[in-house]
Design a protein around this nucleic acid. Structure first.
Length: 261
DNA sequence: AGTACCACCTGACGGC
DNA sequence: TGCCGTCAGGTGGTAC
């Protein structure tokens, strides 16, 4: 379920659980999780090493192995990182297992295999190669306006485009648009709208993180608490619309989310 | 530059 | 109980 807040939780988890432990061995249990690296190369690169830090950019995670080698992780739709105490049963869909000399292990569980594991020289190199834009929580207002203004397409696909701004997914994009009062089908937003959208994005991400990315704990005033067929807008009671926009299911309020100013 | 598909996978859920 | 269609919070590629 990973968008920026969930991935940030995963980063903190990795940071708290997996640093500074010597890796006894890494085992790729399903090669389909790998991106442009072979199981053998990855396993050999990790054996005997330690992780020294955990970074996140957008939805990407990076574990530092040494100054010129990082393990890059992406959780996809169903990826989950689990630190195992010794003897614990492996999660059912463990695609990568990293066993430490202290008997603990890190499992990358991912039923649908939309996740990704690779190696890179540095996070910066990785982000450039993959054309990933600035992180949604690090970008400032001016940067956001610069990137988003003058675009002709629908706003929602733009928010989901990780090469523009990285970290928003389908749910939080809907939420930010809802709070800013902008239709997902709006296009050519003016400066005032983009400004409101930027504020909403920051507010939504901050709030999500403050609940430890637990969607259940979001305020009732949020769209996400009502984002299901038959749900009603917590602001004005309108029946929420559900529509495919840019190929993704979108919920929005026809009453207060406008297509134009 | 934008859009509209398709593909990659598996599991959960509702209807019959 | 079981089969079937549909849906899912991500990303990449290709064709127009």
């Amino acid at each position: 379920m990973p968008e920026l807040p969930e991935v940030e939780m995963a980063r903190r988890y990795l940071e708290g659980a997996t640093l500074h432990q010597t890796i006894e061995m890494a085992e790729v249990r399903d090669e389909r999780i790998l991106f442009k690296v072979s199981a053998r190369i990855l396993e050999e690169a990790l054996a005997g090493q330690q992780f020294f830090s955990a970074l996140r950019h957008g939805k990407r995670l990076f574990l530092e192995v040494h100054d010129a080698l990082w393990l890059a992780l992406h959780l996809g739709l169903t990826g989950n990182l689990i630190y195992l105490e010794s003897e614990a049963a492996l999660p059912r869909h463990t695609r990568l297992l990293i066993a430490f000399e202290n008997g603990r292990a890190l499992a990358f569980d991912d039923p649908r295999i939309f996740g990704e594991v690779s190696l890179t020289k540095s996070p910066q190199t990785f982000l450039e190669e993959r054309k990933i834009g600035p992180d949604a929580q690090q970008i400032d207002r001016d940067g956001f306006l610069r990137i988003m203004s003058g675009r002709k397409g629908l706003i929602k696909p733009a928010l989901l485009n990780q090469s523009l701004v990285a970290g928003l997914g389908n749910l939080y994009a809907d939420e930010a648009l809802f709070q800013a009062g902008i239709s997902p089908e709006a296009r050519g937003l003016d400066e005032v709208q983009l400004d409101a959208l930027f504020s909403s994005i920051q507010e939504v991400l901050w709030t999500a993180l403050s609940t430890n990315a637990d969607l259940e704990k979001l305020p009732d005033s949020y769209l996400l608490a009502h984002r299901h067929p038959g749900g009603r807008c917590p602001r004005d009671g309108s029946l929420l619309l559900r529509e495919k926009i840019g190929g993704r299911t979108s919920y929005y309020c026809p009453e207060h989310q406008k297509k134009s100013c």
